[in-house]
């Protein structure tokens, strides 16, 4: 039951933040250098193996980071245990669904591009 208690969530929040930071820097460096960004170039970048994987990793890290943040807010302001649990479950399911949706998106476009 220590999982997500205390230190773990705090460390995970920072690890996901570092992953996001790294990917954002990488993305910015890629997109802002080279020829101007049009559909062609964007599509080629995003549906390359690297691109697709990194986009999925980015959204997964976003989802996890976001959930930990919402959990911190709930721990501060919501004190009714059932309400808090319900909120965290709903947010968790929605964030998870979004990540799955991104995986599907990338899979479809990747398959089409290949």
């Amino acid at each position: 039951m220590r999982l997500f208690l205390g230190q773990r969530a705090w460390v995970l929040q920072r690890v996901t933040a570092l992953v996001l930071l790294f990917l954002l820097a990488l993305g910015a460096a890629t997109l802002l250098t080279g020829p101007p960004l049009g559909y062609e170039r964007w599509h080629a970048l995003a549906t390359s193996t690297h691109g697709a994987v990194l986009i999925v990793v980015f959204f997964a890290a976003l989802g996890l980071h976001g959930w930990i943040g919402i959990r911190d807010i709930a721990l501060d302001y919501i004190h009714a245990p059932m309400l808090r649990l319900a909120l965290l479950a709903v947010v968790g399911v929605i964030l998870f669904a979004i990540v799955i949706r991104v995986v599907l998106t990338m899979a479809v476009h990747f398959a089409r591009g290949a």
């Binding site: 208690l5 205390g6 230190q7 969530a9 705090w10 721990l75 501060d76």
Partner: peptide, 9 residues
């Protein structure tokens, strides 16, 4: 201290 509430609030 390693606890969501005690330290990590």
């Amino acid at each position: 201290l390693d606890d969501v509430y005690r330290l990590f609030r």
